[in-house]
Amino acid sequence: MPPDASTGPALGQRLDEARGRAGYNMRRLAEVTGIPMTSIHRLIKGEIAEPSPTTLVRLAEALDLSPSELFTLAGLPYPDLDDLLRNQYGLPEEAITEIHAIIAEHANKER
């Protein structure tokens, strides 16, 4: 399958370069991230039209990359804070509300 225009070779190339720099083969990267090796291979080849945000965040963490860079290369909007807290960390709404209150409190102290 040819690379998909939405992810194209740029995302795959970036992932593959970072994988090599980190010293991971495909199998080890799959173990570290919990992402199936076939999915990683397909991402690197540009065969996945819209990678999941969770996959991109896991790869970014494992490869010491910026998640926002991978989102941009994948043509995806970076998730807002609430989405990130909910989906990446599994926080309930009441915890997210508390976090917003803490942020607001600290922002007011800085003014």
Results as ranks from 00 to 15, higher is better:
13 Q>A: 13
108 N>F: 12
21 R>F: 12
47 E>N: 12
3 P>K: 14
69 E>F: 02
80 D>C: 04
107 A>W: 13
78 Y>S: 05
37 M>Q: 15
28 R>S: 03
40 I>N: 09
35 I>S: 12
87 N>H: 07
66 S>R: 05
94 E>G: 04
36 P>Y: 12
106 H>S: 10
73 L>E: 10
1 M>G: 12
39 S>R: 11
50 E>W: 03
60 A>Q: 00
105 E>F: 15
13 Q>C: 09
71 F>P: 07
57 V>R: 09
91 L>I: 05
101 A>H: 07
12 G>R: 11
86 R>V: 03
16 D>S: 15
109 K>Y: 14
42 R>E: 04
46 G>L: 08
44 I>E: 15
68 S>R: 14
39 S>I: 08
29 L>V: 06
68 S>N: 08
89 Y>Q: 00
71 F>T: 07
58 R>T: 01
26 M>K: 13
85 L>I: 05
100 H>M: 00
55 T>G: 08
32 V>H: 09
110 E>Y: 15
9 P>V: 12
21 R>S: 13
76 L>S: 10
108 N>M: 09
32 V>N: 04
96 I>Q: 05
30 A>M: 00
36 P>M: 08
72 T>I: 12
68 S>H: 08
37 M>V: 12
68 S>K: 13
59 L>S: 11
21 R>C: 12
109 K>G: 11
